[in-house]
Amino acid sequence: LQTVGCMPPPVSSAVILTKAVGGNEAAAIFNSAFGSFLGIVITPLLLFLFLGSSSSVPFTSIFSQLFMTVVVPLIIGQIVRRYIKDWLERKKPPFGAISSCVLLMIIYTTFCDTFANPNIDLDKFSLIIIVFIIFSVQMSFMFLTFLFSTRNNSTFTPADTVAIVFCSTHKSLTLGIPMLKIVFASYEHLSLISVPLLIYHPAQILLGSLLVPTIKSWMVSRQKALKLTRQPKAPVKV
Rank of each mutant, 00 (worst) to 15 (best):
R151H: 13
R151I: 02
R151G: 04
N153K: 10
S154N: 15
T155S: 14
T155N: 14
P158E: 04
P158C: 10
A159Q: 05
D160Y: 03
D160M: 11
T161S: 13
T161Y: 00
V162D: 00
V162Y: 08
V162P: 02
A163E: 09
A163L: 07
A163G: 05
A163N: 09
V165A: 02
V165S: 10
F166D: 00
S168G: 10
T169S: 13
H170F: 12
S172G: 06
L173S: 07
L175S: 10
L175M: 11
G176A: 09
I177H: 03
M179G: 05
M179Y: 12
K181N: 14
K181W: 01
K181G: 03
K181Q: 12
K181D: 07
V183S: 03
V183Y: 03
F184P: 07
Y187M: 06
Y187D: 01
E188R: 07
E188V: 07
E188H: 13
H189D: 07
H189T: 01
H189K: 15
H189A: 14
H189P: 12
L190F: 08
S191D: 02
S191H: 11
S191R: 10
L192F: 12
I193T: 05
S194P: 00
S194L: 01
S194V: 06
V195D: 01
P196A: 08
P196T: 06
L197Q: 00
L198H: 00
I199H: 02
I199G: 04
Y200Q: 05
H201E: 12
H201T: 10
H201D: 11
P202N: 06
A203W: 11
A203L: 01
I205T: 05
I205F: 04
I205H: 08
L206P: 11
L206C: 04
L207T: 15
L207R: 09
